[in-house]
């Protein structure tokens, strides 16, 4: 009985198909997917199969999980959403970077805020060396130049212990 009522419901809803860069297809209700500004504009232009060349299956699965949960948002389940968000940002830095890149491409503002803030929280108080490692940045200062930049605001480097860990 439960399944027939849910299938009759989906029968009324407009469905869309998202296709990942790996070629996997995901069928979703339009009401869920329009949280994403990029897709919303494509739907308005009449598309129902939406290829996402910049988003792989692993990332798209996570993004769909986010959009489904946030489509359920009401006044009464705020705590539940908060806990979901907390779990959602727990992955490795590399997974988070894939997600933030996809969220930016898809223009999902809420997800962008969530991910950018969580990455900022994680790198706050990290050492310069750890930050370079995490973002795979090579130091392009000469030793003299680096010393000069440090000296300009020496106090910022003296504020206690910096975290050297890479997670």
């Amino acid at each position: 009985m439960a399944s027939s009522s849910s299938s009759s419901k989906t029968g009324l809803k407009k469905m869309l198909t998202l296709k990942s860069s790996d070629g996997d297809e995901f069928e979703l209700e339009e009401s869920i997917v329009i949280q994403c500004q990029t897709i919303k504009h494509m739907v308005e232009d009449g598309f129902s199969l939406i290829p996402l060349q910049n988003v792989d299956t692993k990332t798209l699965t996570k993004i769909i999980e986010y959009m489904k949960k946030h489509a359920e948002k009401t006044e009464s389940n705020k705590e539940e959403i908060k806990n979901f968000n907390k779990e959602f940002v727990k992955g490795s830095f590399d997974d988070q970077f894939e997600l933030v890149s996809a969220a930016n491409y898809l223009h999902i503002n809420g997800l962008m805020d969530l991910l950018c803030q969580s990455i900022a929280d994680r790198i706050n108080n990290k050492s310069v060396r750890a930050v370079r490692e995490i973002f795979n940045i090579s130091n392009d200062y000469t030793p003299d130049e680096e010393e000069k930049v440090r000296d300009e605001h020496k106090w910022a480097h003296e504020g206690g212990e910096f975290d050297e860990s890479l997670d």
Partner: peptide, 8 residues
């Protein structure tokens, strides 16, 4: 202010 040292 500290992260200015990461790169140019």
């Amino acid at each position: 202010m500290q992260l200015r040292s990461v790169c140019k």
